[in-house]
Design a protein around this nucleic acid. Sequence first.
DNA 1: GGGTTAAATGCGAATAAGATGCATTTACAA
DNA 2: TTGTAAATGCATCTTATTCGCATTTAACCC
Lengths: 137, 137
Amino acid sequence: MADSQNNWPTGMKRTKQRESVLFILEEAEKPLSALDICSKMDKSGDTAWLSTVYRILELFIKKGIVLKTNLMNSDMSVFELNRFKHKHYAVCMNCNKILTLENCPMERFIPKLEDEDFHVMGHNLEIFGFCKDCKAH
Amino acid sequence: MADSQNNWPTGMKRTKQRESVLFILEEAEKPLSALDICSKMDKSGDTAWLSTVYRILELFIKKGIVLKTNLMNSDMSVFELNRFKHKHYAVCMNCNKILTLENCPMERFIPKLEDEDFHVMGHNLEIFGFCKDCKAH
DNA sequence: GGGTTAAATGCGAATAAGATGCATTTACAA
DNA sequence: TTGTAAATGCATCTTATTCGCATTTAACCC
């Protein structure tokens, strides 16, 4: 099961379900919803209850292994492996395709705030528009 | 009732509830949730059902009068008057205070995407961190 | 390897934001 | 003033996510 086979993060029990979630996230190129993950598990034979998947994801987030995002004000969160590199997405307003943004405008940006003592920890950014397939209606 | 008294957007019936929602949004300095708006209406005597508030907000959004945002991956949307100027926020990770960001890094930014035909329509950005009151725990 | 136990999962039920359906009410045009 | 399409009150539904508890399981000890 890829990398996770030999490399298990410390401080958590190694269960079939956790291995399966981690494997799916390792293979995924784009963020997945909890339901996506659950379906993929079903297909591969490692079935797990949706609530279990949420609990596993919650744990992975706490451990810093996984990142949670909400794209386009959607009410469904998506999850991806924390690959420890800065990342943003562009989302197609028509087909919801997710594209990786390869640069970041925040690199050399100094935020101007009313509260000049605000201690910036990070930022969320997403671009929206129409992908090449949806541009021509 | 401030500006909205004499200046009613065209193409929609002028009802007590709609006037009240618009008034509240005009007075508000920061985005409000549907529930916030509903509570403020209760206090002022113009009670309305929460589902009505949602319907009014939906209409205002469609008319371009109101903007909807989700801050910090929260499952609750917030709404503000569309003042037709570009706007982003900084949110305190501790007290959830919302601060207005007065500049925008996207002004002179050219996004790099795998799909070089992506037609950018806009972007969402938020900064998170700790405000001056929460910085010193 | 077998037993012990704290932690994880299965499963159902609870939450909470938001949407929907329908009967009643209301704004507004004729 | 009256007719009517549209808006609201109200209840109920939906959907993502969380919680509670009984059962199962990983991992440590012998």
